[in-house]
């Protein structure tokens, strides 16, 4: 399955958040598309991102690299990048690479949008 991407803006208590809904497989072939999307959002001034990974079937280290790159970009603008994920097999990849300490991971888009820390 290919990668699908869609974005929408949602207002939260700390301001607008851009939700990026990702579906399909994020791997060495499709990760560049996600990278382009994140770069484009930051270039357009969206510095608070919520990446919704509930529709992701597969994630590898290339995808992790893209998310880390996105985090680096938004942080340069004092922004944030939060993830939404409840899938154990995807969470496992964040755990074994130690990235659960780097990304705030939420159980729903609402929770991520309303996070204020």
């Amino acid at each position: 399955m290919d990668l699908s991407l869609s974005t929408r803006n949602v207002s939260g208590p700390s301001g607008d958040r851009t939700v990026v809904e990702v579906g399909g497989e994020i791997d060495v072939y499709t990760a560049p598309k996600l990278r382009e999307q994140l770069v484009e959002l930051v270039n357009d001034g969206s510095y608070h991102l919520v990446v919704d990974m509930e529709g992701v079937d597969f994630l590898d280290s290339t995808g992790l690299g893209v998310l880390v790159g996105g985090l680096k970009r938004v942080r340069a603008h004092e922004g944030s990048l939060r993830l939404v994920c409840n899938q154990e097999r995807i969470l496992k990849i964040f755990r074994i690479t130690g990235l659960t300490k780097v990304f705030p991971i939420h159980t729903s888009v609402d929770e991520a949008v309303n996070a204020t820390d």
């Binding site: 590898d60 280290s61 290339t62 992790l64 690299g65 990849i93 074994i96 690479t97």
Partner: peptide, 14 residues
């Protein structure tokens, strides 16, 4: 580069 090392970290972890 670094992505390669992350790939290996994943393999080692799995």
């Amino acid at each position: 580069d670094g992505e390669d090392e992350m790939g290996l970290a994943v393999i080692r972890g799995l």
